[in-house]
Simulated assay, not measured.
Amino acid sequence: MNIEKMDSLEEKRIIILMSTYNGGDYLDEQLKSIYAQTYKKFRVYVRDDGSQDLTKEILNQYKQQYENFEWFSGENEGASKSFFLLMKIVPLEDAIYVFADQDDVWLPHKLQHIYKVFETDDNMKPVLYCGDTILADDKLQILKKENFGKKIYPSFGNALIENICIGCTSAMNSCLLSKLVEKVPQYEVMHDWWFYLTAACYGTVIYDSEPLLYYRQHEGNAVGSGATKRSRLARRIRNHKKHKNQISRQVEEFSEIYQVYGENAGLIECIKRYKDSPKACWKLVTNRNIRRQCSLDNVIFKILFLLKQL
Rank of each mutant, 00 (worst) to 15 (best):
K150C: 10
G149W: 06
F42N: 02
G203H: 11
K139E: 10
E10G: 11
E188Y: 12
A280N: 09
K81S: 12
E210I: 13
E210V: 14
V299Y: 12
K283D: 12
E182W: 04
R238W: 09
A199R: 12
R43I: 13
N245G: 00
S19C: 15
G167R: 07
Y214G: 04
T120Q: 10
K308V: 02
L107H: 09
I114C: 08
Q30R: 14
E11S: 15
L59M: 07
K139M: 07
H243Q: 09
P278F: 15
T55M: 03
Q309K: 15
C175M: 08
L9Y: 15
I257M: 06
K241Q: 09
K151L: 14
I152E: 02
I15R: 04
N147F: 14
A222Q: 09
E253K: 03
L92P: 09
E256M: 14
Y35Q: 06
Y187P: 01
D276E: 14
R235G: 10
R273Y: 15
K32G: 08
P108Q: 11
G203W: 12
V184R: 01
Y115F: 07
Q259L: 08
I257E: 03
P278K: 14
K40Q: 10
D94P: 13
R288P: 02
D192K: 03
D137N: 07
K32E: 09
G24F: 06
K244F: 04
F83R: 14
L212S: 10
K229T: 12
F118S: 04
N68S: 05
H191W: 15
I290Q: 00
E11R: 12
S73L: 10
